[in-house]
Amino acid sequence: MTLAARLRRLVRPLLVLLLAQAAPAHADERLVLVVAANSPITALSSKELHKLYLGLTVTVGERRVRPLRNDADALMHEVFFQSIVSMSEPVYDRRMLAQALQQGVLPPLLSSTRAVFDHLALDPDAVSFAWATDAEKDSRVRVIRLLWRR
């Protein structure tokens, strides 16, 4: 193993540890899928969730589900790629670029959990994800499934 590879192997865990430390206190809990408290959506499978964040159409009953992407912190950013779309970030970005060029609809990107919850409160057909500790504190949203757990 080369010196560079050894250095990387030493540095990467530290980076991940730093990411984890830099994340909010709830980062050691669970990432959950949330909808508005009055939303008719009660469940979404992994496959439906995957399709939803790839820009494909997913319906519940007669209503089209609208995804919101929560990018509140770095760990959530990484977990989104690993557990929700199950892609590497460059591949997902290329997919979204192709989607945009084909006049497709991209999931809106929000930079805070509060903003996500505000949107969800106004749109019962919207879904998003958040740390479970945050979701359980806000009565305007409802958890419908577990997405990731440390």
Partner: peptide, 23 residues
């Protein structure tokens, strides 16, 4: 070991671990 590697080589042991909840 309770790991859920978010990047290539993150564990440093040559194994990339993933954990996916089944609903």
């Amino acid at each position: 070991h309770g790991r859920n590697d978010l990047g290539f080589g993150a564990g440093g042991d040559g194994v990339h671990y993933l954990a996916l909840p089944i609903v």
